[in-house]
């Protein structure tokens, strides 16, 4: 009688815990214009969680553009900070900006970091018919006539994308102050502008850019900021390192939750993601989206964010 009682109790507990934990209104916030990396992040989250079956309802995607995540960050540390079902997409750039205080008064400790879903690498995209074949070509062109080349990226000056452009320019010996930088609310917007010819270069990410190339958009990757050439379709893209520019820029993509989300809800989501990211189908999902796996969940992520924040705070701003 006691063993059976224990099994039934355990099963009941398990069931109840599962049944109590699932939050209502699961939402993933895309804090930018659609068709960018944040959208990709939320889509990945949606698919991954859906595959586990842990959530009765599918995750709904919600748009909240503004400051490439700044507005969303402020919302989820204030008015919506206790929503149990809301996940907010973030990237390494967001971490950088938060660490530098650019997202407002709240810092990285004010949200509950949940999970990193994958890693991307920064990349330089140009129009298909652009005259530059290699990164040095582009760099030379920038140095010769900086004002004639508009470089786009998400975020403002001293933001991540801009810093990538700036470091490139510095290596080229060009005056970064004479660069023409156009800020966008997300990689999707930059791509659209690139295609339209309003900017000549986009400081973007390899994954989102490749996806657009796949869709038939007339853009081309000039370089990728990875240590070694990536796998798959991206293997054809030379790294910046091999072209003489030693810049390596991994970009984590993940989600966080509001500051006052309960431990129980947070735990639910953490478990759900642990399960989701471990599934083999997820690896294929990543590969299809040109991302590398790098599962960091819960405490591991928090540790990572802490370390990142510490080093980011020390970085000097070029301008």
């Amino acid at each position: 009688m006691s063993i059976r009682y224990l099994i039934i109790l355990a099963a009941a507990l398990l069931c109840s815990s599962l049944a109590v934990a699932a939050p209502a209104n699961p939402v993933c916030i895309v804090p930018s214009e659609p068709d960018g990396a944040f959208q990709l992040t939320c889509e990945l989250a949606k698919e991954a969680i859906a595959a586990t079956g842990d959530l009765p309802q599918p995750i709904v995607l919600e748009r909240m553009p503004g400051g490439v995540g700044a507005i969303a960050f402020n919302v989820f540390t204030s008015t919506r900070r206790a929503e149990p079902g809301s996940l907010v997409a973030f990237s390494e750039g967001s971490l950088f900006n938060i660490a530098r205080g650019k997202f407002g008064p709240h810092d990285w400790t004010d949200v509950r970091w949940l999970a990193v879903l994958g890693v991307d690498y920064g990349a330089v995209a140009v129009q298909d018919q652009a005259p530059w074949r290699t990164l040095p070509d582009l760099v030379e062109a920038i140095r010769a006539a900086p004002r004639s080349i508009a470089i786009g990226g998400s975020g403002t000056i001293n933001g991540r994308d801009w810093m990538r452009a700036a470091s490139l320019a510095k290596l080229a010996g060009a005056d970064i102050r004479t660069m023409r930088f156009v800020a966008f609310e997300g990689g999707g917007d930059c791509m659209a502008a690139l295609v339209g010819g309003h900017v000549q270069v986009c400081m973007n990410d390899a994954a989102t850019t490749q996806k657009r190339i796949d869709r038939g958009q007339p853009v081309r990757l000039l370089a990728v900021y990875a240590r070694d050439r990536l796998e798959g379709k991206l293997s054809g893209v030379p790294t910046a390192r091999e072209q003489g520019f030693d810049i390596v820029w991994p970009v984590v993509r993940g989600v966080y939750m509001g500051s006052d989300v309960s431990d129980a809800d947070y735990a639910f989501w953490a478990d759900a993601f642990r399960k989701a990211l471990a599934q083999p189908a997820y690896q294929n999902l990543l590969a299809d989206n040109y991302l590398q796996p790098s599962p960091l969940i819960g405490d591991e992520l928090i540790k990572f964010v802490r370390e990142h924040a510490a080093s980011a705070a020390k970085e000097r701003e070029p301008l």
Binding site: G66, I71, G104, I157, V182
Partner: peptide, 10 residues
């Protein structure tokens, strides 16, 4: 407040 910016930064 400078949090949101789109367009020519300079």
């Amino acid at each position: 407040d400078g949090m949101v910016e789109i367009g020519d930064s300079f």
